[in-house]
Amino acid sequence: MKAIVIKAYGGPEGLAVVELPAPEPAPGQVLISTEAAGVGGVDTMIRSGALADYGFAERHVPGGEVAGVVTAVGEGVEMSWIGQRVWAPTGNGGGYAEQAVAPAQEIVALPAELSAVDAVTLGSAGAVAHFGLAHARFAPGETVLVRGAAGSLGIMTVQLAARDGAAAVAVTTSSPARGERLRRLGATHVLDRLGMGTADDTPSAYDVIIDVAAGENMPAFFDRLNPGGRLVAVGAVAGRPPATFGAGLMAAFQKSLTFSTFSAATVPPEELRAVRGEHFAAAGRGDLKAVVHDVLPLDRAALAHHEMDAGEVFGRIVLTP
């Protein structure tokens, strides 16, 4: 089968198209003929070598989620899955390939009206957005700031916060044009990347901040929290925050602020499946929008990573074999 591997850490030119043996499903797994593979920020971090300490070796196949048709099942998996269209997580890799394996307990059947491209735009991002807001103890009537809102995860957080009753949904983004697109998805206030806004009604602080970016500027956003406010880091596309970032929390001791991280790896598979199924059904009805930046053939994965590195992606890039 055709697949993409990281032949050398660094820039997108380190990605190569190769032929690999098709994987076989182990017990508890399914084999999927890939129709679409999502390109995520973590993929670019793995490719760059930033996560080499986590065991990602060169020759690694990137890609954490796919959608397609189940063609074989491993021992212990119901045969009825064969022939079904599904969304599937491939863990920390394996998605940039014509065939991929995934744990059967985590796959989700797709409604007929939802495309494979839309499924990988919503699947991982929607679950992290949902459970990230829950981790922040978000409640209707509270104000929310989404930091780094133009990617698929930020876009889903904006939509869910607006749908679930936020009093205001502010976003940080890099341009007024992006801000207007985010307004059409539920944002009420558009800020620059440092969290500054110009409208008279822009909130000065927020009850919840969902931070997709992290990076060196993250500590400054503790100043943008209301008393009792919660900042949850759900990503780190801008890199790790400085080692001293906790000093800002201590400086605001009397505001009782909370900082935490969130990873979907801590959520039971059955809960993830239920939420993803609800999101797929909602998208099929038109109640949630999958925002796709570009659809590229699998062998243009390097171009997809160039676009990601340039920081101009709005939504998700999807690869199709």
Results as ranks from 00 to 15, higher is better:
Ser174Gly: 15
Thr198Lys: 13
Tyr206Leu: 01
Pro140Gln: 06
Arg230Thr: 15
Leu225Asn: 05
Phe262Asn: 02
Gly229Val: 02
Thr172Lys: 06
Pro219His: 04
Arg224Trp: 04
Asp201Ile: 07
Gly215Gln: 07
Gly126Cys: 06
Leu153Arg: 03
Ala162Thr: 02
Val120Lys: 00
His189Trp: 11
Leu225Thr: 03
Thr244His: 12
Ala125Gln: 02
Phe221Leu: 06
Ala161Lys: 05
Gly141Phe: 11
Ile210Leu: 15
Ala168Lys: 02
Ser263Gly: 11
Gly228Arg: 04
Pro203Met: 11
Glu216Ser: 06
Pro241Trp: 00
Gly239Lys: 06
Arg147Ile: 02
Gly154Val: 01
Ser124Val: 03
Ala166Cys: 11
Leu133Val: 01
Gly165Trp: 07
Ala136Pro: 14
Gly132Trp: 01
His189Glu: 14
Gly195Trp: 00
Gly141Cys: 07
Val144Cys: 02
Ala150Met: 13
Ala187Gly: 09
Gly229Leu: 05
Asp192Tyr: 09
Thr157Gln: 09
Gly132Leu: 03
Val212Ala: 01
His135Asn: 14
Arg230Asn: 12
Gly186Asn: 07
Leu160Thr: 08
Ser256Gln: 13
Asp201Cys: 08
His130Tyr: 15
Thr261Val: 08
Gly151Val: 03
Thr202Glu: 12
Ala177Lys: 10
Gly195Pro: 12
Ala233Gln: 13
Leu160Gly: 05
Ile209Glu: 02
Val190Tyr: 06
Asp192Gln: 11
Arg193Asn: 10
Ala170Tyr: 03
Phe253Trp: 13
Ala134Gln: 15
Phe222Gly: 01
Leu225Val: 04
Ser174Pro: 10
Thr202Arg: 03
Gly197Leu: 08
Asp201Phe: 13
His130Asp: 03
Ala136Thr: 06
Thr198Arg: 13
Met196Tyr: 14
Asp211Cys: 05
Val208Cys: 00
Ala220Leu: 10
